[in-house]
Simulated scan of single mutants.
Amino acid sequence: MAYETVEQIPNDVREKLPEGAQNIFRAAFNSASEDGLNEQEATQVAWNSIRVSYVQGEDGKWQPRPEEKTDHKPIGNMGAA
């Protein structure tokens, strides 16, 4: 069962996820379904896709995962002849 719009995903999912995450959920679910996974497996794939970019807050709602700051410094004198 593919979701043609985000309005078709389950209410409990829609209530917890911001719009961008709802789109990710729908796309991941549909892709997994097209690959032959059953509804439960496709739902698990969709939630795993959400966890890549979103984190669940204490209120149960999901928000974008904070970007990790890196402190990259150049190593040596790369490219010098």
Score class of each variant (00 low, 15 high):
K73T: 12
E67I: 15
A42R: 12
A46W: 04
S53K: 07
E58G: 04
H72D: 14
K69I: 14
N48Q: 13
E39W: 05
A46G: 07
A46H: 05
S53H: 12
H72Q: 13
E39N: 12
K69V: 14
I50K: 04
Q56K: 04
E67R: 12
E67M: 15
E41V: 03
V45H: 13
V45N: 12
R51Y: 07
Q56E: 09
W62E: 08
P66H: 01
D71I: 13
K61C: 09
Q44D: 10
Y54T: 07
K73Q: 13
D59G: 02
E41M: 03
A42H: 10
P66L: 09
V45M: 09
E41W: 00
G57H: 01
V52W: 01
R51H: 03
P66F: 10
G57D: 11
V55Y: 04
H72M: 10
D59W: 08
N38S: 06
E58V: 04
H72Y: 13
R65H: 08
Q56G: 02
K69A: 12
E68C: 09
P64W: 01
E41A: 08
E68M: 13
K61P: 06
R51P: 03
I50G: 01
E41I: 00
V55K: 00
Q63R: 07
Q56R: 00
R51V: 09
N48K: 11
R51G: 08
K69L: 13
V52A: 03
T43I: 04
T43R: 09
D59M: 03
E39L: 05
A42N: 11
N38D: 11
Q63A: 11
R65A: 13
D59Y: 06
Q44W: 02
E67Y: 13
S53A: 15
Y54M: 03
H72E: 14
D71V: 15
S49E: 09
W47F: 02
T43H: 09
V45Q: 15
S53C: 10
Q40P: 00
P66N: 03
Q56M: 03
V55P: 00
D71P: 00
K69P: 01
N38Y: 00
S49A: 12
V52K: 07
Q56P: 01
V52D: 00
Y54W: 09
Y54E: 05
H72F: 13
E58W: 05
E68T: 15
S49K: 02
N38R: 03
I50M: 05
K73V: 13
W47C: 00
Y54K: 06
R51T: 10
G60K: 05
S49F: 02
N48G: 11
N38M: 03
E68K: 14
V45T: 13
N48A: 07
E39H: 09
V55E: 06
Y54A: 07
I50Q: 09
H72C: 10
Q44M: 05
Q63C: 05
A42Q: 11
W47G: 01
E58P: 01
T43S: 02
W47I: 06
N38C: 00
G60L: 07
V55M: 02
S53E: 12
T43G: 04
E67W: 14
V55F: 00
V52G: 00
E58I: 05
R65P: 05
